[in-house]
Amino acid sequence: MLARIYQPARNAMTSGQAKTKTWVLEFSPEEARGIDPLMGWTSSSDMNSQIRLMFESKEAAVDYASSNGIPFTVSDPHKRKQNLRSGGYGDNFATNRRAVWTH
Rank of each mutant, 00 (worst) to 15 (best):
G16F: 10
E31H: 05
S15V: 08
T14P: 00
V74C: 06
K19F: 07
L38G: 05
V74K: 07
W23V: 09
F72M: 07
F55K: 04
M54A: 11
D76M: 10
F72Q: 05
S44F: 08
S75V: 10
E59P: 00
L25K: 08
R33C: 08
Y64H: 13
S45C: 05
S28C: 12
L84A: 05
E59I: 08
D63L: 01
F55Q: 06
F55E: 03
Y64K: 03
A32C: 04
P71S: 12
G40A: 11
M13L: 15
S43R: 07
S75A: 12
F55H: 06
G34D: 08
I70T: 06
P37Y: 04
K58E: 15
R52Y: 00
D76A: 11
S75R: 11
V24H: 11
R52I: 11
M13F: 12
F55V: 05
A65R: 02
L53H: 06
L38A: 15
T20E: 02
I51M: 05
Y64E: 02
L25V: 08
L84C: 01
A61T: 11
Q17R: 15
T42E: 14
I70M: 03
P37L: 06
D76F: 04
P37K: 07
W23S: 06
I70P: 05
S66N: 08
S66L: 02
Y64P: 01
H78W: 02
S75Q: 12
Y64W: 13
M54D: 13
S67E: 09
N83Q: 09
P77E: 05
K79D: 13
L38R: 12
R80G: 11
V74I: 13
E56D: 14
E59M: 05
N48S: 09
K21L: 03
L53M: 14
R33F: 10
D46E: 06
